[in-house]
Design a binder for these strands. Structure first.
Ligand SMILES: [Mn+2]
Ligand SMILES: [Mn+2]
Ligand SMILES: [Zn+2]
Ligand SMILES: [Zn+2]
Lengths: 166, 166
DNA sequence: ATTCAAATGCTACAATGTTGCATCAAAAGC
DNA sequence: GCTTTTGATGCAACATTGTAGCATTTGAAT
């Protein structure tokens, strides 16, 4: 239930702008998709909207706790499942075998991510668009493309040049 | 310990060509990296070399079992860890929160993957190169890029057009 | 205020991966 | 070949991440 990496600590909803474009109100989003407007869903959406990088279930849970919003693990999993089903959020297979979530951007605003294979940090690369569709085998339908750049972040690169790849 | 998807069943080392280019001998590869040549490592490498798509720990374990190579779960995890550390194999964050592994191709032969979000199938897209490096923040080092196309495979697309996104 | 499906909160469980430590065996030295 | 050394293995116990079932609560429609 606790953060392992105090570096990315990102608890209660911050006040800086998210991905540099405005976001619709959480209540409206939920209602527009025919869901019930609950404290948990509102807080999850607002947390994701405010985040500068995709958040893990654990990180989102910490944000809810910091905002004094009672919830249990399973409820949060289900809220996230619902957001993904609705296309409001998307799952990203970040490194550490735990999903990460972020608001799903449409068309122009989609972007790639950088994943540090040493410390696990994930960074949104706003400038790098995810490449558009190449030829797929017959019958295959493309939904979205995910581009992840792997390597070492500035912090990890500086120290131990030859640490574990993992 | 059993396969869930008989469709991708890929047990004992098959005899067809892998990614359509030849592979170095497993023993040589291991020795060249200063590791001990053990049955487990040899079999894991040969299994990966023969595979047409990235394999999960479970699938590789099944292949070892089919080849009558005794091993335990942890040993296999460690063999795979070692291959990744050495840069012989690479981990791919396939959907189902389980790593998938494949031989790491160099330069020209790197390719993208297609992931079916309905049935979980993963396909190597030999023709689609992973895009080359864009601008990264100062100090960041790029190791490799991972391009995953998400959508529905031919089988899944045909049936239920509007199933679960997940 | 009443109604009722949609969300929630437990508890119990499954799947995937990790750690510690005793034992085994690959390969190097003799 | 025999011994030695240390990397690799096997086993047991544990951690993390995510799911399923079911009783209870609550959003929102009437
Ligand atoms: Mn992002
Ligand atoms: Mn591949
Ligand atoms: Zn890092
Ligand atoms: Zn499919």
């Amino acid at each position: 239930m606790l953060h392992q990496k105090p570096a990315h600590d990102q608890t209660a909803m911050p006040d800086y702008a998210p991905h540099s474009h405005p976001h619709p109100s959480a209540r409206d989003l939920i209602a527009a998709h025919g869901g019930r407007v609950t404290r948990t869903r509102i807080a999850v959406i607002e947390t994701l909207q405010a985040a500068q990088h995709p958040l893990s279930h654990d990180e989102i849970g910490a944000a809810l706790a910091a905002a004094d919003i009672a919830h249990d693990r399973v409820t949060l999993y289900r809220a996230l499942d619902w957001l993904v089903e609705q296309g409001i959020a998307q799952r990203i297979a970040g490194g550490e075998r735990a999903w990460r979530f972020e608001i799903r951007h449409d068309g122009a605003h989609r972007h790639a991510h950088f994943h540090c294979d040493r410390c696990g940090q994930i960074l949104c690369l706003e400038e790098v668009p995810t490449e558009t569709s190449p030829a797929l085998p017959a019958g295959f339908e493309l939904d979205r493309t995910e581009l992840v750049l792997h390597g070492a972040c500035a912090d990890c690169g500086r120290q131990g040049a030859k640490a574990g790849t993992r």
